[in-house]
Design a protein around this nucleic acid. Structure first.
Lengths: 156, 156
DNA sequence: TTTTAACCAGACAGAATAGTCAAGATTTGG
DNA sequence: CCAAATCTTGACTATTCTGTCTGGTTAAAA
């Protein structure tokens, strides 16, 4: 159970774009330098973010990327959804059906509801933290996350 | 952010062994059939569980696997630790350092504390649910998990 | 209009993960 | 003692994930 490279680096690049907020778009080369990643790789990640509707770009000289939505409107959950497949998708019992056609645990699965709760909870908690929180300050982000976790826990 | 095949299938196999609890050990072939997995694969997973000290085995005819600890003593966290690498290990800033020698985000990382809290929280929550809970009943397991989440949230 | 800096797209190679295969070791039962 | 059933081990293959490379397209600037 760990986060993928795409999620980690993709989020970082998005934060760079959000932090920029200048008049001119932020070029890939700049982000790559800031993050210590290759230009090609950053390009790939930003493409994914663009197709997910989080950023937009302009081509040509003096081109680059800029936010397509306000950082305060983009939750961590949304970013992760864009950068990776849904955490616990409906195809779960297909993915883990082994050699059988259908999942062996149709009745009392025992495990599925556990992952289901965990993922639901996590997604809801991460939905309460935005990119704006992250770029504001580290302390604020932590506070916001903890508050969000507690709120979701109370809702269980 | 998703669970790996080893975690999923390994946990399932462990549950099979825990459910058995008969006098004679449970052979791999039995587990493989129950779970719809290949005998070879199940063997590999059980080997990992054995080396992690969760199960033990006897060879020869009428051999198989049995629990090395009481199901009530084994938390989900422990199982996941055995089946995969630690969720968020200390080598994090090495893993994601890009092309640079050291992580670019030594001062204000912004992301690291988020994952750190999430993982810590999750690990603690999963530490409050045992294999015994899982094999008891689905409803009990869900209740136990929710209670554990709430307890950990209160501690934040 | 030419140059140039940037985005875009798909193929590609390397690494990590998943899962299989085959030969060997150990114990039980006849 | 022998044979069958079972675990053990390591090598092997296949698939997915990472990250790179190459050749394009676009548009601003000189």
């Amino acid at each position: 159970m760990k986060i993928s490279s795409q999620e980690e680096y993709g989020l970082r690049c998005l934060i760079q774009v959000a932090r920029d907020a200048g008049e001119s778009p932020l070029p890939i080369s700049e982000i790559a330098m800031q993050e210590g990643l290759s230009v090609e790789y950053v390009g790939k990640l930003l493409m994914k973010l663009r197709k997910g509707g989080l950023v937009d770009s302009v081509r040509g000289k003096a081109g680059g990327y800029f936010m397509a939505q306000a950082p305060g409107e983009i939750s961590l959950k949304l970013v992760l959804d864009v950068l990776s497949e849904p955490i616990y998708d409906l195809a779960y019992c297909d993915r883990f059906s082994g050699t059988e056609e259908t999942c062996v645990h149709v009745e009392e699965c025992g495990i599925r509801p556990i992952w289901s709760i965990v993922n639901r909870f996590l997604a809801d908690a991460l939905d309460g933290v935005t990119i704006a929180d992250l770029i504001e300050s580290e302390v604020l982000a932590k506070k916001r996350l903890k508050a969000s976790i507690q709120e979701q826990a109370a809702r269980l």
